[in-house]
Design a protein around this nucleic acid. Sequence first.
DNA 1: TCGTTTAGCTAAATTGTTTTAGTTTTAAAG
DNA 2: CTTTAAAACTAAAACAATTTAGCTAAACGA
Lengths: 341, 341
Amino acid sequence: MKRNRISIKDISKALGLSNTTISFILNGKAEEMRISAQVAERVLAYVKEVGYTPNYLARGLVTGKTNTIGFIVENIGNPFFSQIASLIEEQAYNNGYKIIYSSTNGQTEKAVELIRMFRDRGVDGYIICPTEGLEDEIKQLREENRPVVLFDRYLPMIDSHYIGISNEDAMYEACEHLANKGKKHIALITTDSQQTQMLSRLEGYKKLIKERKLEEYILYIPYKERKERLQSDFEEFLKNNPTIDSICFATNYLAVGGLEVMRSKKIKMPTKVAVVAFDDNEALRLFQPGITAVEQPLEEMAKLIIDRLLLDLKLGKVNDKTFHKELPARLILRDSTEKLV
Amino acid sequence: MKRNRISIKDISKALGLSNTTISFILNGKAEEMRISAQVAERVLAYVKEVGYTPNYLARGLVTGKTNTIGFIVENIGNPFFSQIASLIEEQAYNNGYKIIYSSTNGQTEKAVELIRMFRDRGVDGYIICPTEGLEDEIKQLREENRPVVLFDRYLPMIDSHYIGISNEDAMYEACEHLANKGKKHIALITTDSQQTQMLSRLEGYKKLIKERKLEEYILYIPYKERKERLQSDFEEFLKNNPTIDSICFATNYLAVGGLEVMRSKKIKMPTKVAVVAFDDNEALRLFQPGITAVEQPLEEMAKLIIDRLLLDLKLGKVNDKTFHKELPARLILRDSTEKLV
DNA sequence: TCGTTTAGCTAAATTGTTTTAGTTTTAAAG
DNA sequence: CTTTAAAACTAAAACAATTTAGCTAAACGA
């Protein structure tokens, strides 16, 4: 697999100049380094002619920069992550950065391994949807002055940039919406995960329930076995709590799976049981009857994430002052009784 | 942003050995290179103690290998691509490879740029969902002995590995299904793209129409303006062809967008107009009434793609004999009149 | 005892770039 | 006709690994 790509050395030899000169010119430092306009022009013309492009590995070895961002998500197959990935990739690309991505599937060991692998590959910055227990690894990244931005959820014990949404408020509003429609028995279907975004959503639910003096109905689906357990646990939950007149799903996959169950059980929505989903997506947009959903501002999140990372990357070191931003989410009303927003 | 990572040099100095010895041991060549067991053990213990990990950039510079695969899709935000990405990533990871991905958004110039960027970064192999007009660039990759696997669609003018599905058969079956249900006016909603997978789907449709002596109803949505045009063009198409009693959507985004339109127009499905979609996904799975859909065997495709690429990577050069595989797709019957499969 | 093997290790080149610390040439100043 | 300064360029080190070719010392055989 011999590749005889042209190198700076080849150019300098062909033109009777030094590597230094070529490098300066190629990096736009010709004027600064007092390379004459004629020489610069000659080099540029030749470079274009032979179609030279720099070897990023060699450059990265010297500069310590690779113009690569490591992007760690829970699962790229999840529409929430793939959509934000699409937006982040686009913005990174526009700023000269490439993305290496990987999925943790919620496993901390894999996340640790991925971070180390990314480090060995010299990625310049990290965008991470952290798993529980990733504190030490991320703290170390910061100590090594590697820019990191967390998103979707954060790690309470460590100080770092974070972009997410105001989960508590969003869930509160979602449940408030149900309560305002006269629902008295609002259930929350969530996971057993201790991730901050899930805890906040839980808090939002509890807050509304307390304020309205309603009864709590919470079903925790074990995250690791969500595929197998959702259906059985949810069916049992519905059977054991026949008074439930409305349900909030705390994530998109719970909503999709849950709606599938409700449909198969022929539960009348929204008349018998009203539904609100956290995280909007294609499936919910098409679902009939209309499912009111919490929409995350993906574009805005992606922009904030990239901007913050680029800021630190440009600064050349990790900012002492961490940026912690929770964007408001938007409740999209889709109940058949309401006007579509 | 000074990082003082430990290097082989540090280890050799600390242990009074040479870089060569350390490198041999770390690469499992100790026996082959006749390094004594004691020394090997001592080195390994020290390496573990100080937590050394190799610099992939330096290694890549010397070996020309980076254990990285470049993955070029149309748009990672599209569920088809994000799901296959998830599967490919997992399998690549299990084989010690990382993925760098990027989206072309169907633009050839961007695809060319991406391929070159990947090359400059020294990716070992390429998995590409090609845009039209990418022939020269891919031919060149092959000439440079860089392993390439195309998927979803191929480029008829060049010889290269390709994994996809038998689009013509799949579309034929989908339309046959409608015809067998007594539909006489079957329409196809597709794009104006000349990509092979789209042309094959078109052929499948035309074949069935011809065989059954039916009338053709085809709507071509311009790919570049699909977002804006789908609704207006589709509505007009329906108005101009009131006899249509069934519709095949040729891609997932056309199906989702089209169903949205049909719903807003309050078209009775499947009684008034039956629908079949190409490419199954969450949204269709949840849609009511059940939408019969062509499901692509994603796992199998991902496995074939990775296996083929790894084969070439292990071989160390591009295989002369190209692998061209079209997997059968599966029609998932979901019409309310049928049993769910 | 001398030559040959073999075990056990290493010096140094190599990869392609960036960058520091120059050197040489030319022009201006005194 | 020096000295000084600026202009235009370059030699060589550095980055962190891999790898080729070879070196030294001990063991072995005749």
